[in-house]
């Protein structure tokens, strides 16, 4: 059971990264490869706010959300808007990820930093497995944010507009929706989400610069398995990846866990390219 708990925890982090991808993807059909690095930045700011500044928990969250959201908006401006075409955007988002990694390393160094958890650090025993409160909180966060994503996208004017943009950009423009502002907004929201998660992910993973690139890939797999642009997809995809990773690590050996995730990715992409919850997109020659 402990293995399952740790798989679910990993899955929660991947799912939260996938959710961040989805927020941006739904509104602007952009895949923001640097999103996981934004989350990593969030863990560092959490460290800085908690350990260096010794701020109260509420302010830590606020600071993380604001700073990371601002960085995400900058990213949209310099790495997304001037670039046409997916190849170019992949290059620039990888560039932004690297830039962010470099800057983070300059400020905080390359050593992993321990981010203290604001809640209890006592191990719990749930369903016969050992689990930390922070891990439960991560899982809770995934469920809550995925639910918010679904609720907003289905139940508010903003959400309806978001889905309209993803279905037909031009028709959305003709309804007076400021598509560009939506794109910036999506980056800001996904950045804020990444920031808010900093103080929760940090205690689990430590604040370490190299976290971004591996999270980016696993988050991508979660999104691909769940379906591009789907909230429930991010949840299910994340958990699937987390469980595959921890279970195969447990029963086949550490070295096989990434390999199994990769196999799952290939299988989904070749057999069901839209993912489990994705929509088929019509193609025109």
């Amino acid at each position: 059971m402990t293995v399952i708990w740790s798989g679910l925890t990993l899955g929660a982090i991947y799912g939260l990264v996938a959710l961040g991808y989805n927020i941006v993807f739904v509104t602007s059909n952009v895949f923001n490869f640097a999103h996981a690095q934004l989350l990593t930045l969030g863990t560092f700011i959490a460290f800085w706010a908690t350990v260096t500044l010794k701020l109260p928990t509420v302010l830590v969250f606020l600071l993380c959300a604001v700073i990371v959201a601002a960085v995400a908006v900058v990213e949209e401006r310099i790495a997304i808007r001037p670039v046409r075409g997916t190849e170019g955007q992949l290059v620039t988002t990888v560039g932004f990820l690297t830039l962010l990694e470099g800057v983070t390393q300059l400020i905080w160094g390359g050593q992993p930093l321990q981010v203290p958890f604001f809640g209890s650090e006592k191990v719990l025993s749930v369903f016969g497995g050992r689990v930390f409160p922070v891990e439960l909180m991560l899982m809770g966060a995934l469920v809550v944010f995925a639910a918010i994503f679904v609720a907003v996208s289905r139940g508010t004017m903003l959400g309806i507009a978001m889905l309209a943009v993803s279905e037909d950009r031009e028709a959305a423009l003709m309804r007076g929706i400021n598509v560009r502002a939506m794109a910036i907004g999506a980056f800001a929201v996904s950045g804020a989400l990444a920031g808010l998660l900093g103080p929760v992910v940090g205690p689990e993973t430590f604040a370490v610069v190299s976290l971004g690139s591996s999270l980016a890939l696993k988050g991508f797999v979660a999104m691909a398995i769940g379906g591009f642009g789907s909230g429930p997809g991010a949840l299910i995809g994340g958990i699937t990846v987390g469980l595959i990773e921890s279970e195969s690590g447990r029963y086949l050996g550490e070295s096989y866990s990434n390999l199994m995730v990769f196999t799952a990715l290939l299988a989904v992409m070749l057999l069901r390219p839209t993912g489990l919850f994705g929509h088929a997109r019509e193609r025109v020659v």
């Binding site: 309806i160 309209a164 031009e170 028709a171």
Partner: peptide
């Protein structure tokens, strides 16, 4: 727009309400 370009995956009500978005 041409070809009845509405949001075909959304409901009629959502479509009409989007019309008032601005």
């Amino acid at each position: 727009q041409e070809n009845k370009r509405i949001f075909k995956r959304r409901t009629v009500e959502a479509n009409l309400m989007l019309g008032g978005y601005s």
